[in-house]
Design a binder for these strands. Structure first.
Length: 250
DNA sequence: AGGATGATAGTCT
DNA sequence: GACTATCATCCTG
């Protein structure tokens, strides 16, 4: 295993970020998903069709591009969704990106130390939470970012299946934080974007209840979580799903 | 392989 | 002051 060259503190990292304005290399974006992909699609359908697509992240410090296949997502709807930050149509400083143009990144901070990454969608206050990725490019950097975060620094390697199998884990592995990524437009940002990856047929999409919802019984059970059937990279907590209902796309 | 628990601070009431 | 769209760690088996 090669040694990592990253050893910057958080503050140095942020300084670099402001200094470095690297030219955008067009070949990065040949397969980028644009407004055609994000607009005019319901939140639920966006959550489904983003499965198999590539989440791409260019690190400001090194210019390295990390990539991972989206294998798990969740829909958070607008005013009617008890589990959504936009419940009752409330707009706050935090959830503002949920109300912005479809394709806007919504990064929020939770549990005192973690970030979660969403994409706003059509539908007032709706967004899609990216819950898990199958990493395909830059795994070594992802691993060092994960290890840097959990300062414990026991040298144990992290298995590829455990690198991005959770909403906060993928944010750590992709260096996604509120300060740099929140409100980025993924259709034109050079820090974060999506690319065409693999077409996932409808019969390979599983719908299930969302994770970590404690509020309302009805909304807790709604099948608004989607993942690629039998994929090894979905978040660990949910491999014990008992009910796997195939979804009808249309 | 899986259950229990503590960490830790932004956000909202 | 209460509650997190969670995770790493420390157990048990």
């Amino acid at each position: 295993m090669k040694a990592t060259k990253r050893s910057k503190t958080e503050s140095e990292h942020c300084e670099d970020e402001q200094k470095i304005m690297k030219p955008v290399v067009s070949r990065f974006f040949v397969d980028r998903l644009n407004d055609d992909f994000f607009a005019n699609v319901s939140c639920v359908n966006l959550a489904k069709k983003i499965l198999g697509k590539l989440l791409c992240r260019r690190l400001e410090s090194s210019g390295e591009v990390l990539k991972g296949i989206v294998v798990e997502s969740e829909s958070y709807l607008g005013a009617e969704d008890v589990a959504s930050h936009s419940y009752k149509g409330k707009i706050t400083a935090r959830n503002e990106p949920m109300f912005m143009k479809a394709g806007t990144a919504y990064v929020y901070f939770t549990y005192g130390m973690y970030h979660c990454f969403n994409i706003s969608s059509e539908g007032e206050g709706s967004a899609v939470l990216i819950r898990a990725l199958q990493p395909i490019q830059g795994l070594q950097t992802m691993e060092s970012l994960r290890k840097r975060f959990s300062k414990k620094a026991n040298g144990k390697p992290i298995k590829a299946t455990h690198l991005c199998n959770g909403p906060a884990k993928l944010c750590i592995a992709f260096d996604i934080c509120k300060q740099t990524i929140n409100k980025q437009d993924v259709t034109c940002s050079d820090l974060i974007w999506f690319e065409n990856g693999f077409d996932v047929s409808e019969c390979d999409i599983v719908a299930a209840p969302r994770i970590g919802i404690s509020a309302d019984e009805e909304w807790k059970l709604k099948p608004l979580r989607f993942y690629i059937k039998n994929n090894e990279y979905v978040s660990v907590r949910n491999k014990k799903e008992k009910i796997e209902t195939n979804v009808n796309l249309s």
